[in-house]
Structures are given as structure tokens and as C-alpha cells.
Nucleic acid binder design. Structure first.
Ligand SMILES: [Zn+2]
Ligand SMILES: [Zn+2]
Ligand SMILES: [Zn+2]
Ligand SMILES: [Zn+2]
Lengths: 147, 147
DNA sequence: ACACTAATGCGAATCATTCGCAATAAAACC
DNA sequence: GGTTTTATTGCGAATGATTCGCATTAGTGT
């Protein structure tokens, strides 16, 4: 009776079709991994979670960049040297809390920047539009603060 | 009568001495370039502004990392793929406005995050401290918005 | 089944940044 | 001044992340 898994699978597939992508095994698996994780994943983490056969990193990079370009996933650079990709689950954009020691990443759902962004534009001398912002917080997670 | 240039020079040298660095021609020239520019400079920009003889990028990277570690300059990663370094002129930290097309960078002097940062920590489930944040705004500069 | 083209796989290339190590040259010491 | 100590340099080579070129494979629509 439980159709949850298959529904999820077909959801991911439908999403691919809707966005004009082809429903390939690789991109299905990639979206599965991303959609099951509610935080940005690095390439290394994705590779670790990868269960399908071989995995070519060029293909992986291309799929991720492809998804990011159409907003299917969001790419964030958290000053850790490598990009991370996150499935947004339909949520609006949000921010992150990054442990300076172990690079643990936690989602920060609230955004307090929207009005400030308008002020930034007003005060700017050489910009005519501000479309978006990146905001990351850095600190120590519980585990790392004990050491 | 005008001692401005020489005073600036010796200031930069004094700063090196105070921080325990050696007063070398290279690091003097580097600090000159950084201190004369009120926005973060990429390595490529620094090389372009470099007037001294040859310039070894390993040496440059090491000096910049060295300066950043002791707070002489601030390193910022603005999602442009390359790090930028900025002399703070004693100012508190601030944020940036980045043109999505040409990567023009403008300083945003105000910071509206301080109180929000406390809230983020309170709401966090796995962090015990938040020390800092990065905030960058992305938009279009006047020149790029005309095209 | 066929045509069209997105997506893949492979290797090699590129780009930013870092490393190893011997050579230099400040700063400190006699 | 001459000597020691050690930061800094210079060079080349390594690393690591990301991208490119191109032939091959495989969805999708007809
Ligand atoms: Zn997130
Ligand atoms: Zn926001
Ligand atoms: Zn700045
Ligand atoms: Zn701030």
C-alpha cells in the first residue's frame, strides 16, 4: 500500500520532464540524493552518497550546473573551497550556518535582508539593481566547541 | 614640504614592523597597492597594479594569506571564483555589492546583521556560537544595466 | 523504426591556490 | 662590521576543483 518511494521517484522524474530535461537514470539518482537531503551537499558528499554504477565527475558537474541554471537546485559557495548544491523543496531562498572547524552546515530558514537590500541599492553610487544576496554565518557547532 | 608620500610609505613600513613582519620591498609595495584601494582586489587586479619588477604568484599568495591571518587585510570570496583582498583602513567589517555581469565590486559600509546574528544562534539546533558572517549583494552596475 | 539532440564518458586542459626546497636578505646579536 | 637566525623569496612542480573537446549513447517526439 505504501507508494511513498515510487511516488517520490516519479515526482523527481516529473520534475525533470517539466523542466525540459531528459529522464535519465543518472539525473534521477542525482535528484533523489539532493531531494532527500535538506542542506547543501558538496560534490564529495554527493559522490559518497552515490549508489549507481560508476560516476563521472564531468557529467556530475554538468548536471549540477544545468540544474542550478534553471533553479532546480541552488548552488552555494560557503567559503570552504568547494561549491555545494541544495534542493530547495519549493522553499524560498535561505541562509546557512557553517562550522568554522568541521564545515558542518545547517540551514537558516529566516531571511532578514529583504528590506536592507533595498536600502543598499538606494545608497549605492554605481548600481542600478540588486537582485539577490548571499549570507552565511560562521561559528562553531556543538561538537567542535567541546574540543 | 609635502611629506604625504613618504609618510604613507613609512606608515606602511611601520605597520609591517608592528605586526612582526619584515620590511621587505615586496610587502611594502603590496601594502601600498592595497591601502590605496578602498575595495577588495583580486589577485589579477593586484598583478595588474604591480609596478615592481617580476612578481611571483606564490610569494604574493603567501604574503596575502599571511596578512589575512593577522587581520592586516581581509579576504573575501564573492562567488566570482577567485579570492579578493582588501585593506580595511581601520574600519569595522562591511559588505559588498557585486555586479553579476562585470564583477564590479562596491563597498557597502552599513551592516544590519548584528542583531540578526544573535537570533540565528538562538534558533540554531546544533551550533553554540556564531562569530561572523559574510553578506554579499548581487545586482547590475550602471554600465552593465545599459547593455 | 527514425531523426534529432540532450546527456554521457573519457581524457585532457584550465584555473586558482599550495607545496617543497634551496637561495636571499631582514632583523637581531656579538 | 661581521655573524647568526629565521622570515621571505623564487622557482618549479603539485594539488584540487572545475571545465572542455569530442566521439558515443540514449531519451523524446515523429
Ligand atoms: Zn540550505
Ligand atoms: Zn536572504
Ligand atoms: Zn570592502
Ligand atoms: Zn555584517
Amino acid at each position: 500500500m505504501s507508494r511513498k518511494q515510487s511516488v517520490t521517484d516519479s515526482d523527481v522524474g516529473d520534475m525533470l520532464t517539466q523542466k525540459g530535461y531528459r529522464r535519465t537514470a543518472g539525473r534521477m539518482a542525482l535528484l533523489e540524493i539532493l531531494s532527500k537531503t535538506r542542506r547543501p551537499l558538496s560534490i564529495a558528499e554527493i559522490i559518497r552518497l552515490w549508489k549507481k554504477d560508476p560516476l563521472d565527475q564531468a557529467t556530475l558537474y554538468r548536471a549540477l550546473e544545468d540544474f542550478a541554471r534553471t533553479g532546480v537546485v541552488h548552488r552555494s559557495d560557503l567559503n570552504t573551497g568547494t561549491a555545494r548544491y541544495e534542493y530547495l523543496h519549493g522553499r524560498p531562498h535561505h541562509h546557512h550556518l557553517v562550522c568554522a572547524k568541521c564545515e558542518l552546515v545547517e540551514d537558516v530558514e529566516v531571511c532578514v535582508i529583504t528590506e536592507a537590500q533595498k536600502k543598499v541599492l538606494q545608497r549605492s553610487s554605481s548600481f542600478t539593481a540588486v537582485y539577490s544576496h548571499n549570507l552565511e554565518f560562521f561559528g562553531l557547532c556543538t561538537a567542535c566547541s567541546k574540543v
